[in-house]
Amino acid sequence: MILYYKRAIKDILDNRFLNAVTIITIAISILIVSAFALFFVNVNDIMSHWKKGIRIMAYLKPGIPEEKISDIKVKIQGMNGVQDARFISKDEALMRLKKQMKRQSSLLEDLKENPLPDAFEIRMTTSSQSKDIIERLATRLESLPQIDEVEYGQRWLGRFTNIFNLLKLTGYAMGGLFFMAVVFIVSNTIRLVLYSRREEVTIMRLVGATDRFIKAPFYIEGLIQGALGGIIGLIALFVTFMFISFNMEQDLSFGFSTIRFLPPKVFCGIILCSMFVGWLGCYLSLKQFLK
């Protein structure tokens, strides 16, 4: 086994130029594909954050007596898809507003009277966060006599999901294309290497070497190319990512969550994928070469 590794590494060094080209090609492809992956991971994050944040605010008409409030609460909680309804008095709402506005909160100090209404904040169960269910619930809430207005700002979320899915599809298609291109390139490099060593391969066979013995270093070579290309591609992505996220965090803070790099699982997945590509390229050219 060690012998195979030694031979593989020697091979790579002997064919430095070819191998460098292959590794760089793999790296660039990995960079592009994983940039897509990174984009999806973050958009997905943001979307699920929004989804989790989907809540319906039901504002009460002014002057509803306190005893009535718990009645309404029970009624709301009995509705389909509601996980929990929390009463937010207008005083509490004002407090929250002040907290959110921080520096500008002095503006609110001068208010003689609290202009905010009492409200219920309604959270949905996870299974009923679809647009339809939310809309149905909203109409039912509106039909309650004590409720003045119902608000749920995420109407556009549905449309956004569609766009996101389309992008995702494009991402997969591009990933597939790059995959094929890289397999093609790797198999061609290995073929060139094989071609330059055909005499050596013939001699090795004449002195009793098995196909396995001859092939093993090439496979290791393919795997090393894949791994190196993957790692270099991801490092390049990481550097780009750091650069972009550094600038972004200063310009526009998202307020809810910061963007993040690929999770370790995806990271490893990409490297494994890239190694697989190296292996497959090798497999294809060897299959052809050794009939």
Partner: peptide, 14 residues
């Protein structure tokens, strides 16, 4: 698959 084994029986001076 057995050709390598056959060839190992030989020492060949080409």
């Amino acid at each position: 698959k057995r050709i390598p084994l056959l060839r190992r029986k030989y020492g060949i001076i080409f």
